[in-house]
């Protein structure tokens, strides 16, 4: 199990030719299915963001993330970063903001979302939009 906070800032390299693409900027998630879908990489020069499908990730190590291919995801996902997003129940009540995500780097399957008010299991997530991460009230 990996926390997103451990990944942020790690260099991203291709496993085939060791080319450095940049550093991990953020993740894109599909809240409804509870999976990490994309890796957002910010290039060093030029500082351009590349969005890679999570399936392209070869290995997540303590010091680097290795990817099989530098081909960007097509189509690009909506640019909602889960971290720092407000959490809202389907009853319309706020439940803090997202601090971190715990997930299995092999499958991209999320275990939980860490919020300012505690941990929420991934099976309670409903959706992530421009306003909030929606969860089932419980």
């Amino acid at each position: 199990m990996t926390f997103f906070s451990e990944l942020r800032g790690l260099p991203v390299l291709t496993v085939t030719d060791a080319a450095e693409l940049g550093e991990v900027r953020s993740l894109t998630v599909d809240a409804a299915s509870g999976t990490v879908t994309h890796l957002r990489v910010r290039g060093r020069r030029p500082r351009r963001e590349t969005v890679l499908p999570w399936a392209a990730v070869h290995a997540v190590g303590p010091d680097a993330v290795l990817v099989r291919s530098a081909d960007p995801a097509d189509p690009a996902p909506p640019p909602h970063d889960p971290v720092d997003r407000r959490v809202l129940t389907d009853a319309g009540d706020e439940r803090g903001t997202v601090r971190d995500l715990a997930f299995d780097p092999g499958t991209g399957r999320m275990r939980s979302v860490v919020t300012t008010l505690g941990e929420i299991p991934a099976d309670r997530l409903l959706g992530l939009g421009d306003h909030a991460l929606m969860i089932r009230a419980g």
């Binding site: 959706g127 992530l128 939009g129």
Partner: peptide, 10 residues
């Protein structure tokens, strides 16, 4: 008060 979809969009 914001009107928000179950998908999290206002």
């Amino acid at each position: 008060r914001p009107v928000v979809t179950l998908g999290g969009d206002a």
